[in-house]
Write a protein that binds this DNA or RNA. Structure first.
Lengths: 210, 210
DNA sequence: GTAGTCTGACAACGTTCGTTGTCAACCGCG
DNA sequence: CGCGGTTGACAACGAACGTTGTCAGACTAC
């Protein structure tokens, strides 16, 4: 057979993967530039300089692409933050700070990712579902770490989970405000204050008691 | 002239206002039932059993209706919370608790309002703008009250504002989780813990110092 | 009753969308 | 070279949308 799939020196699978990444990247572009409503098969393909055929080659529909896009960002944030935590000193404050600094670094270095997580993801059913599940997972990791570090006087699981959700939602709001320019703070101050707020929130429930 | 505007015993202005309220209510229904994407001139009018003409009689376009809907809810939450604060004992904890309890009461008694504020509002440009401006206003009220009650050792304005944004975003996340059933807590416990988290967050920045 | 307004149902126009299909030009390989 | 897979441009279909217009019937005021 003449063609074994290779084209311009690249195998068929690799070309497909390239187009898939390109489509996800273009989706982030469209999302950031003109909002969720402006993301369509046509607009994404135009941004990627691809044809609709290659869209359907990689994704069943628009929702699948949007989910893949937000998943990519979520994964990057989670991996970066987790790596930073592992590399940080064992004190809880240092670890919290490391996680916040790492996560903030990802979205501050590419605003499109912040848009995908903080803005557009909230208004779209499947994307919101993804984001909330990631927040739950994040919360559970947090709970485990906190539980290990404060063996005495733990509030029950629901309260811990509520606290974890609280710090995630609050951080999203603060980060969005900073990135949009409404709140002017240096990166160091953002990280410092978020760290303080996290630690305060994780201590607050036990101060109230039951 | 035969017709001075009255119809079925109701003046023209009042009929118009009734239709306007009905359209806003129908918009909340559509938003809650099928999400932001399902809100269209046709769907809202069908829900309201009105014709498109009466839509354009009251609103320039869909965005105007959505803004009016979210404004209505925001106003109700703000008024209710403010009234509760005024009626509460002067201690800061009691006032915070009263505000949270009142605001939570509004959205828990009508889930459509929660959807409008917490879910759909986030993914829509103009609605998000409205929501964020309301959060800023709320934050400023909070800052004023806190500043009056803790005259010593105030963090600067940016940090206070960040804290206020933090508690608003965090509360939204927790309330959404509770209302969606992912987080099972009684109303009393939700209010208790949110109060504790608010107070903790408003104290946290000063513990870090600058 | 009669004129004038209000109401509701529906048609119609142009636009955008998702999705599929067609077709010439391009490229690697024998 | 020539064969077959690959690519890109574009047409085409039905559906939904925003928006405006038409028109018969219900109602009010004189």
């Amino acid at each position: 057979m003449p063609g074994s799939g290779a084209y311009r020196g690249i195998g068929a699978d690799e070309r497909r993967a390239q187009r898939r990444r390109l489509l996800i990247d273009s989706a982030l572009d469209c999302l950031h530039q003109d909002g969720l409503a402006a993301v369509s098969v046509r607009s994404v393909c135009a941004q990627a300089r691809l044809t609709a055929r290659y869209f359907y080659e990689n994704f069943a529909d628009l929702d699948a692409l949007l989910l893949a896009a937000v998943d990519t960002v979520l994964e990057e944030v989670a991996d970066t933050a987790l790596a930073a935590v592992v590399a940080a000193p064992p004190e809880v404050a240092a670890r919290v700070r490391a996680a916040i600094d790492a996560g903030y670094g990802v979205v501050v270095s590419d605003r499109r990712k912040a848009t995908a997580l903080l803005v557009a993801g909230a208004g779209h059913g499947p994307m919101r579902e993804r984001r909330r599940r990631m927040i739950i997972d994040f919360a559970d990791v947090m709970i485990q770490n906190i539980a290990l570090l404060r063996q005495a006087g733990l509030p029950d699981r629901a309260e811990l989970r509520a606290s974890a959700l609280f710090v995630m939602g609050g951080s999203a709001e603060v980060i969005e405000a900073v990135l949009s320019g409404r709140l002017r703070m240096s990166r160091a101050r953002v990280v410092d204050q978020l760290t303080a707020l996290w630690l305060g929130a994780l201590d607050a429930p036990s101060t109230t008691g039951g």
